[in-house]
Amino acid sequence: MRPFLALLRRDLKLAMRDGGALGTAMGFYLLVVAILPLGLGPDLNLLSRIAPGILWVALLLSALLSLPRMFEIDDEDGSLEVLATGDAPLELVAAAKSLAHWLSTAVPLSLMAPFLGLLLNLDLAAYPALLATLIGGTPAISFIGAICAALTLRSRRGGLLISLLVLPFSIPTLIFGVLATTAVQTGTAEFGPPFMLLLAISLVSVVIAPLAVAAALRFQMQ
């Protein structure tokens, strides 16, 4: 557990210090949400109806921005090779780095979402549901994203490739996240079932992704 915590702490520290990545992601999130009403026109009913979807899709795109750097920073300076010779298995390294990405990117973006909801006339009753679905659903994005980041580690234009790989896999998360939030907003459906499915997707990703990431990294270092 000690190497896991050490790596998690280091990655969070690096994310704070090289703050550029999170700043860019948050700025991007704000901008996407802010310009959408300009394009759609001042129809408050329409905006509040599509608000959960917009907030989810925009968050997804913002979270993608920092994925390419996830393993790159350690590959460039040779840290990855030393991490691989540690007593901790590479799977644990992968889990620590994915968790660090979630804590340093997905959680701040999720916390920002309710404020952006104001711009879209999101129903106040839906705020807790929005926050719960984002926090509960984004682990899947970070962990599945880690697989794609590891697979594209040494390829040029890896960033674009990551988006192509991650987005299809995040469709289930997106569907159930929006479904659960809309259910609360309109009061027509139940919040429980889609939210449980959302959590299930996250849990499965958290378990499977480290194995896949470690395999991909071992291959990349050959």
């Binding site: 050490a6 040779g78 090779e81 540690g86």
Partner: peptide
């Protein structure tokens, strides 16, 4: 390549590797 992080201090670099590498 030295596995050295530019934004951490010299001491922090060592402290990290010590706690990561020591079982």
């Amino acid at each position: 390549r030295g596995a050295v992080k530019s934004s951490m201090t010299v001491l922090e670099n060592l402290e990290f590797w010590r706690s990561f590498l020591a079982k």
